[in-house]
Amino acid sequence: MANNTEVKSLLDAGVHFGHLTRKWDPNMAPYIYMERNGIHIINLYKTAAKLEEAKNALRKIAASGRKVLFVATKKQAKDIVAEHAGNANMPYITERWPGGMLTNFVTIRKAVKKMAMVDRMKKDGRYETLSKKERLQVDRMRAKLEKNLGSISDMTRMPAALFIVDTVREHIAVKEAMKLGIPIFAMADTNSNPREIDFVIPSNDDASKSIDIIVKAATDAIIEGHQERKSSKNDDEQSSKDKAEKKAKKTAESKDEEE
C-alpha cells in the first residue's frame, strides 16, 4: 500500500498534474483521479504503487549487472536525467534519439568506436601527422559523436530495459524497444498510451520537479541493486576463501596424521 509520506512528496512535486482533458488518451483512464479546471488529475496512490513496482524491477536488473538506458530529450528533462543516470552509472540519451539506436545497434557501436579511434590517434601521435584541415574535420566528427553518443560509449551490448520520460515525444525509441521485446519503464502523462509500456508510472512528464522526483527514485533503486550485487560478490569471495582455508586445513591435518 502507498505510503502517505511518499504520496505527499509526489503531491508537493506536482506529479499529479496531467494534460488538458481534450488531449488525453482514454487508455490512461484507470490512473486518472478527477478533472479540475479542464485538466486531468492523476491518482497519486496509483502512481506510488506503480513507482514501487518499477523500483523493484529496476533493482533486480541492476543487481544482475545489466544496463538500463535512460531516454529524455525534452529541454526540462535533459539535465535531470543526465545527472541521475550518471550517478547510477547508467547510459542515457538526452540529445536527438539516433534512429536505429536499438534495431541497428551494430552501426551505432561502429560510430562509438570511431570516437575511441580518434582518442587513440591523439594518444599515439598519429593525430599530429594530419594536416590542419584534416584535424579540424576529425575534431568536428568527434564533437558531433560525443554530443549524440558520448553517454552510451560504455554500452557494449543491448540494454536490458529503457526508462523513458515522455513516450509521446520518444515514440521512435518506444517502437524500437517494442520491436525487440525490450521492457519499457516510463513516466506516463495523461496523453500517453500505457499499453505500450511494461512498467507504467502515471506522472506529470513536463514539470522539472516531477521528473526529478521520479527519475531520482528510479536511479536510487538502481544504485541499491548495484550495492546488492557488490555485497553478493563479496559474500561469494569470502565463502570461496573460507572453503579454500578449510580444505587447506584438512589437507594439513591429514599429512600430520600420516606422519
Rank of each mutant, 00 (worst) to 15 (best):
A207D: 14
V138M: 14
E128I: 12
K110P: 09
R109V: 08
R22S: 06
A57V: 05
D206A: 04
A57Q: 08
A29L: 12
A85K: 04
W97V: 10
T219K: 01
R169K: 07
M141W: 13
K74E: 04
M141H: 12
K243R: 13
V200D: 01
R169S: 08
K209F: 14
K144A: 14
D154Q: 07
V68A: 03
E6H: 11
A173K: 06
G125E: 00
I182F: 04
V200Q: 01
G125P: 04
G18R: 03
M115A: 08
S231H: 07
R142H: 14
R96H: 07
L102H: 09
G150P: 13
E134K: 00
K123V: 08
A207G: 15
L162F: 08
A248G: 05
K230L: 03
M187V: 03
I152R: 05
L136K: 13
I41T: 06
R157E: 14
H84Y: 15
M28T: 13
K46F: 05
V81C: 02
F17D: 00
G14M: 00
G18L: 01
K122Q: 10
A48M: 10
N234Q: 15
D119E: 15
I39Q: 09
A57Y: 05
D119H: 13
N89F: 05
L149P: 00
E6T: 08
K50D: 10
N37Q: 02
